[in-house]
Write a protein that binds this DNA or RNA. Structure first.
Lengths: 121, 121
DNA sequence: TTATCACTTAGAGTCTAGTCTAAGTCAATA
DNA sequence: TATTGACTTAGACTAGACTCTAAGTGATAA
């Protein structure tokens, strides 16, 4: 699969895909005789996982760490699990914070709708 | 209330408070005869609201727009409501995305725990 | 054959949201 | 009186995550 196809499939830019490769999150992707990238099934799976985790706000630094541990092999399994568990905690916390903010936002909108707004901001 | 006290109360830095003032999110804050900031109750309420919204990822640009509309007065009420409703939609979408990512993360951790991990990454 | 187009690279530039620095003022304490 | 410490300013710097540019290559269409 070419970089263009991958970019379309996952709705991201070629630049982002090359950037992820440069920082070592993906690949190194195989290239054909003309030096053009040909993404493998495994590349695609990594990209999908990374895209999903990025959309949750997990940093490239953390993902890079995870990928590096994975590439080190079996011996890092437990460490990888712990890394993921830490990110789970952070993510749950973030969702909680955002849900609280959402509730406040909804309340404020309700005040606007019922014209009861005699408040600050 | 001094900048230091406000910073402590809301767990943020003096720099961030001055930055918010500089971009017009807060204040202008009253200053005493020595030029030292003295935050009012209203300033504190704004800061609290802004901090909450920032923690949900609402951009400074959007918040600035909201604050500016507010300062324009009554006539902007409906526009403000719409702005907030848009942010509500975005926020709900973001929470949904993050919750999905969280589910995937949990599933992956489960695979680690049960040693069924014969997967990619 | 020439032009076009998608790809390649290294590296510079951008945006957001702070964060830090330098130089200065003021009030209170040693 | 001298120094300490918290505050002030303007403006430079940073981190993270891209995004863009310039210069070049190679395959295909006219």
């Amino acid at each position: 699969m070419t970089i263009k196809e991958v970019a379309e499939k996952f709705d991201m830019t070629n630049d982002t895909l090359r950037y992820y490769e440069k920082v070592g999150l993906v690949g190194p992707v195989k290239k054909n005789s003309s030096g053009i990238r040909d993404y493998s099934e495994e590349d695609l799976k990594r990209i999908e996982f990374i895209k999903c985790m990025r959309s949750a706000g997990i940093s490239i630094e953390v993902l890079k760490k995870y990928v590096d541990l994975y590439d080190e092999g079996e011996s890092t399994k437990l460490e990888r699990q712990h890394l993921l568990e830490e990110e789970q905690d952070k993510l749950e916390e973030k969702i909680k914070t955002m849900t609280e903010a959402l509730e406040k936002l909804k309340y404020k909108i309700e005040l606007y709708k019922t014209n009861k707004l005699d408040e600050y901001l």
